[in-house]
Amino acid sequence: MEKACHFPVEMEHKAWWALKFLNFDPAKAQWKRGNQLLELKEMCLHAYESSRTYKDKVKFYHDTKLMKRTFHPGDLVLLFNSWLTLFPGKLKSKWSGPFMVKRVFQSGAVELESSTEDDQQQRWIVNGQRLKHYVGGDVEQFASVMMLVDP
């Protein structure tokens, strides 16, 4: 896909200077102007190619950082809330949940379900990269195991 190219003012004046420099010979001026336009076209194509290779490299780097997680209906997961800034602090967890997975879409989206105090079911669809598996259990249970291990 090619985009329209707008000439800067300097390019317009170069045509007049080329005519003046070449003693107003229209054939030489036309040849020189054609070469300048071809050079400009080559620079544009080179810029588009550089942009395409840069985008490919950034996409490859981004895709290597994605973790492949598979979720199944009935799994318990935690949801990462990056926009949660009500009480900023180091020790505040940005993970909320656990929520139950109701459905997994082929695109990587996951439908979550949570129950409220009124026994109402809330459902919403989130990106699967914002989720991680919930490993159940109480914190006290893990703390007692750690105390037995440390002397």
Rank of each mutant, 00 (worst) to 15 (best):
F60S: 11
F60G: 03
T116V: 07
E10V: 11
D63R: 02
V9R: 14
H62D: 14
F24Q: 05
G136P: 05
A4G: 04
K32V: 14
P8R: 04
M147Q: 08
K20E: 13
E113K: 03
D118S: 10
V104I: 00
L66A: 04
K32D: 06
T53L: 15
W124P: 03
K94D: 14
V126I: 14
K68H: 05
S82C: 11
W16L: 10
L76A: 07
G136K: 02
R33P: 00
S96I: 13
H72N: 13
H6W: 14
T70R: 08
F142A: 09
T53A: 08
Y61G: 05
H62Q: 12
G89Y: 02
K28S: 11
H72R: 14
K92S: 08
G108T: 00
L22D: 02
Y54P: 00
L40W: 08
F24G: 01
Y134E: 05
T85W: 12
L38Q: 12
C5T: 09
Q129C: 07
K59R: 14
A15W: 11
S96K: 07
F105S: 02
K132P: 04
K14W: 04
M1Y: 05
S115M: 15
S96W: 09
V126S: 06
L38T: 05
D75M: 05
K90H: 09
Q141M: 08
L84H: 01
P8T: 00
Y48Q: 11
V135W: 09
Q36M: 15
L40K: 06
L112G: 00
L45M: 11
G89T: 02
A4Y: 13
E12H: 06
N23P: 00
K14N: 02
K28E: 12
F80R: 09
M43S: 10
D119F: 14
G34K: 10
Q121V: 15
H62I: 05
F99I: 09
A15H: 04
G34E: 13
A18L: 13
S50I: 07
D25T: 07
V104G: 01
E42A: 14
K94V: 10
L91M: 12
Q30V: 06
V139S: 11
A15G: 03
A15N: 01
P73Q: 01
K90M: 09
F142T: 06
W31V: 08
L78Q: 09
E113N: 02
T116H: 09
L38A: 13
W83N: 13
V58Y: 03
P151T: 07
F99E: 03
W83C: 04
S144Y: 08
K102T: 01
E42V: 05
Y134Q: 06
K55P: 00
E39D: 14
F87S: 04
E49D: 11
K90G: 08
D150K: 13
P73W: 00
V149H: 13
F21I: 02
K68G: 01
K92E: 13
S51H: 11
K102Y: 02
A4F: 15
R33F: 13
W95C: 04
H133I: 12
Y134G: 01
G137S: 06
K20H: 14
L66K: 14
K102V: 02
M100A: 13
H46P: 00
E111A: 12
G108K: 03
G136V: 00
G97C: 02
K3W: 08
G137N: 03
W16D: 10
R130N: 15
L45E: 15
Q141T: 14
P26H: 02
K20M: 06
